[in-house]
Nucleic acid binder design. Structure first.
Lengths: 191, 191
DNA sequence: TGCTAAACGGAGACAGTCTCCGTATTGTTG
DNA sequence: CAACAATACGGAGACTGTCTCCGTTTAGCA
């Protein structure tokens, strides 16, 4: 087989236009109506037929992914200063809190993504990768236990996101993300 | 007003029959197909029309609740031995792990319930109440920090449930509930 | 300018939710 | 043990959302 897995073809101009419009409209719509927003409606707002939407994104998941990819980059960029912070453990703590906030802002839309450390999954990968760096730095500085993995921290963090998101949706008071992440960090910190 | 809020009327025999059949069938169906199981289908299997289902349970939430109430009692009963265990902290740990398993068996169906400490919500209340007892015992024994609330532990536990459930659904390997609850307990334990 | 692969978009099949209302059943009362 | 409310039933059907199929249009190349 020739090396055609990459760049099979450059995508026609109108196709690209529609693709981008769809992602933009979808972002808006998912933020406004949550992850169950009507896809046909998104297509309509983007000025295309449902068929076009479904050709670009075979299912809701795919569209959600595309939306999240854009978002994940901005979130990861947010971490840059933390990577060189003086206290790596505090930086990790701060990052996890931000993660909860960011993911929460997406109405839990992306919380599943934290869990998959899969390279195929761009969003997840970006976030996992960033987290890993922070975790490694904290470990190297002797700030946290060596036996705790990044995945475990991501799982716990995604859990906090879920719990805070659900509580908010039910209008139940809940402890702040800071507090819950703090508790988790307490279990992980070396003393 | 006369004290008629209680027992407004005893429910007709056929109504009760249908109610119970519906809950039974719904339990089965939710376990098999997750919380999105078709309600009309549940009605059909129970041998009633959709109208009947919707009269008893105005929406999916209500039916889910009814199913969970039954289930919560059995889960809480499971905790009885733990309430008198020698090591209250270990007992609490064990209880949280079981909670994750039980809730997870319901395919995350009930995980939202862990979060609402609302008296109105029977299911949540039973579980919260049981947890509270175990937490108090652990605190009294000096096993865990006094500043940690039951609600916080429930939030973290529901998060673990969510994370483990989602990982399983995506066929991603994830750390065991035991491990994650263990990490949480590490943050909460007095040393 | 003309041709072809690529992309479009909307009609419509299908599935699920939920309501309305005519019909049937229950249990009570004389 | 009628007969009659009150209560409950159930299914037709309106509505909403998902997703597909295929005839039509368009971009980009020669």
């Amino acid at each position: 087989m020739t090396a055609e897995t990459r760049a099979p073809r450059p995508m026609r101009a109108d196709a690209r236009r529609n693709y981008e419009k769809l992602v933009a409209v979808a972002t808006e719509s998912f933020l406004a109506n949550g992850p169950d927003a009507s896809l046909d409606d998104i297509a309509k707002r983007a000025g295309v037929g449902p068929g076009t939407l479904y050709r670009h994104f075979p299912n809701r998941e795919a569209l959600l992914d595309a939306v999240c990819v854009q978002w994940a980059d901005s979130v990861a960029a947010d971490a840059a200063p933390l990577l060189t912070a003086e206290d790596p453990t505090a930086a990790l703590n701060e990052w996890l809190v931000r993660l909860v906030d960011h993911v929460g802002a997406f109405k839990g839309l992306a919380s599943a993504l934290l869990l998959s450390a899969d390279r195929k999954h761009d969003t997840a990968w970006v976030l996992h990768h960033t987290s890993e760096e922070l975790v490694e730095r904290a470990k190297a500085a002797g700030g946290i236990r060596a036996d705790v993995t990044t995945s475990e921290l991501m799982q716990l963090t995604s859990g906090v996101t879920y719990a805070c998101g659900t509580s908010k949706a039910m209008k139940k008071p809940s402890s702040s993300p800071e507090r819950l992440i703090g508790l988790i960090m307490d279990g992980v910190r070396l003393r």
